[in-house]
């Protein structure tokens, strides 16, 4: 039975599904990572994903334009990120609780808007699969890596981009400093609030894109609570990835591939109780978090509001 898993179709299937499933996590986790590196823990990712998913879906359904769909998602994500920034940076509310508030708002609001706008579930024409010329011809690798829709490629391109921004630009330096020692950054003339507003708003936009990647690229449908907790896993993946883009990538791929693997295991009729198999990716994440000790890049000021003066 196990042998059934070791053929090309299955392995390609697992890898390819893993990459697809990883896509929303990448958007959301990279966005969340920027927020956390600057010291803001945003637990509202899930709500932002749902709002992004709905907005993109609604726009594409009514205009037929994917570009407008993406722009609308980015806009609503920026608004929600801005709201989170006002609450956590300016008003200095407890970040964990306000994030949960944002989540519940997104959950309820996306559902309400959906019900007001659609009498039933419909589909849209989403981002088509793009076969990258030449590269997609490579056996196995081509099928796994180069036959996806545009938003999948963008998600993976975000990883090196985020690394570059964080480590090679003045902006990245500011973000890292603000998350590690906001007092120091403040005395160096950096506006802690402005940096955090930027990262949290960016995080909102990317979380919103994560939702859009589901509703107008991978699934092309919207449904109430369709993200099913992915936003919270995305937050965990940031810890899993030690606040580094590369680490987040590994975490997202590992989580998604194990998820794809467990689906294939049951597709191939290997008799593992479904409940246990479904737990596997979550267990793995928890274990990784438990065994991961404090690391250098852990933002020391994470979830601490900043106020000038001692």
């Amino acid at each position: 039975m196990i042998g059934d898993l070791l053929n090309a179709t299955v392995l390609i299937g697992i890898a390819s599904s893993g990459i697809q499933l990883a896509t929303p996590y990448l958007y959301a986790s990279i966005g969340e990572m920027f927020g956390q590196r600057s010291g803001v823990l945003n637990l509202g990712v899930e709500g932002m994903m749902l709002m992004g998913a709905f907005t993109a879906f609604y726009t594409v359904h009514n205009t037929g334009s994917l570009v407008l769909g993406v722009l609308a998602a980015l806009m609503i994500g920026a608004l929600m990120g801005l709201a989170m920034a006002v609450i956590s940076v300016t008003l200095q509310a407890e970040q964990g609780i306000s994030g949960i508030g944002i989540y519940l708002f997104g959950l309820g609001m996306s559902d309400l808007l959906f019900q007001k706008s659609f009498s039933q579930i419909v589909t849209v024409r989403g981002f088509p699969t793009i076969r990258i010329p030449l590269l997609s011809e490579i056996p196995v690798i081509g099928e796994v890596f180069f036959e996806h829709n545009l938003l999948v490629y963008v998600a993976f391109a975000l990883v090196p981009l985020a690394w570059f921004v964080l480590n090679k630009t003045t902006l990245g330096l500011k973000i890292r400093a603000v998350g590690q020692n906001p007092q120091a950054a403040d005395t160096m003339g950096i506006s802690v609030a402005r940096v955090r507003y930027f990262t949290v708003t960016l995080g909102g936009m990317l979380a919103s894109m994560a939702g859009a990647s589901l509703s107008i690229a991978l699934l092309n449908v919207f449904q109430q609570n369709m993200t099913a907790g992915q936003g919270f896993i995305a937050v965990a993946l940031v810890y899993f990835g030690s606040w580094r883009p590369g680490g987040v990538l590994i975490g997202a791929l590992l989580f998604s591939t194990v998820n794809a693997l467990q689906l294939w295991v049951r597709t191939k009729g290997i008799d593992i109780p479904a409940e246990y198999a479904s737990m596997a990716p979550y267990l793995l994440t928890i274990l990784a978090l438990v065994f991961a000790s404090k690391r250098v890049d852990q933002p020391a000021a994470l979830s601490k509001p900043f106020e000038r003066g001692d």
Binding site: S17, Q20, L21, P24, L214, L218, L219, V221, Q223, Q224, N225, M226, A228, G229, Q230, N259, A260, L263
Partner: peptide
Amino acid sequence: SDLALAAA
């Protein structure tokens, strides 16, 4: 509720 998982 997990549409992505159902799809996979």
